[in-house]
């Protein structure tokens, strides 16, 4: 096992980690503020990936540029889903929330199958292709772009949450919704907006995933569970927790594949996750 390979896979893992964090960010926001357990998260990602594909195909623009359209569309999509489904179970016990979102998962996955068929679809118009060399190591441009976007989204979200009235209201709702309501925050409106915002972030993530992946109706599987693992690891200790957890997962996968069998890469991540839940039940960085 050469050192170069190890370092190369460390780089790959790090870049992948940023992607993971970006995907998990929307979920972290929704779960953190609203305590809604959305098992259909991965399916949202899948639908957003399809949206990216179709918009890119019809307007003949690169996938990464579709963000300007997909993010608003998904914001509205999120609000609709919230009004139709989530709002009715927001006060319910976790089991009902899980049951209803699993129903949503089955529905969305098979809707994608019925509407868009099973063939994987990949983008044709791309600007972010190839990689560049740093010494002996290769850095993929699409992955790097995703990493940068992921950081930018994190910073913007952090600024929104700390500097704006909206953000402060969100955090107040997250901390104590009764007190926030007493102080004049419209909790229901906050929830609606947060769910929409979370979905918009999912759309941003999906647009950039599409630069190096393709989408099929089953794509949601991979992203859904991984996102939950990252949110759990990050322990809702804020946005940096999500970023750190994403990086840990990405790097752990990279290292595992270097030294052992690619077939067990998820097993290692999940095993790590279970152990972490046991020994640091509050996640790596936070209070739960």
């Amino acid at each position: 096992m050469s050192l170069e390979l190890f370092i190369q896979n460390l780089i790959n893992g790090t870049l992948l980690g940023f992607v993971y964090s970006l995907v998990a960010l929307g979920l972290a926001l929704q779960f953190g503020v609203m305590d809604i357990i959305n098992f259909g998260h991965g399916e949202f990602v899948m639908v957003a990936m399809y949206l990216t594909f179709w918009i890119s195909l019809f307007l003949a623009i690169p996938g990464s540029a579709t963000v300007v359209l997909t993010a608003p569309i998904f914001f509205v999509f999120g609000i609709i889903i919230y009004k139709l489904v989530i709002d009715k179970v927001i006060e319910a016990q976790p089991l009902s929330q899980i049951a209803v979102t699993i129903g949503l998962l089955i529905l969305l996955r098979n809707f994608a199958l019925a509407a868009w068929h099973a063939e994987p679809k990949g983008l044709q118009y791309q600007v972010l292709v190839g990689g560049f060399k740093v010494g002996d190591y290769v850095i993929s441009i699409s992955r790097l772009a995703t990493a940068i976007v992921s950081l930018v989204v994190l910073i913007v979200l952090h600024l929104i949450l700390t500097k704006t009235y909206f953000g402060i209201a969100i955090r107040a709702t997250s901390d104590d919704k009764v007190a926030a309501a007493l102080l004049g925050v419209n909790v229901k409106k906050m929830y609606t907006l947060v769910f929409g915002l979370g979905c918009a972030i999912i759309a941003i993530a999906a647009s950039f995933i599409m630069t190096f992946q393709q989408v099929e109706p089953m794509s949601g599987m991979t992203w859904g569970l991984l996102s939950w693992v990252i949110v759990a690891m990050g322990g809702l200790g804020g946005l940096s927790g999500v970023l750190a957890a994403g990086l840990i997962v990405g790097i752990a996968q990279g290292i595992e594949i270097t030294f052992w069998d690619p077939r067990a890469s998820l097993a290692i991540v999940y095993l790590l996750f279970i152990l972490l839940l046991w020994f640091k039940p509050k996640g790596l960085f936070g209070k739960r």
Partner: peptide
């Protein structure tokens, strides 16, 4: 001889290995 799960989300570690 590398075996991997078909739903792998990232192929770069495998390609890096091949490259080395």
């Amino acid at each position: 001889h590398i075996e991997y799960p078909y739903d792998i989300s990232d192929a770069s570690p495998i390609v890096s290995k091949l490259k080395s």
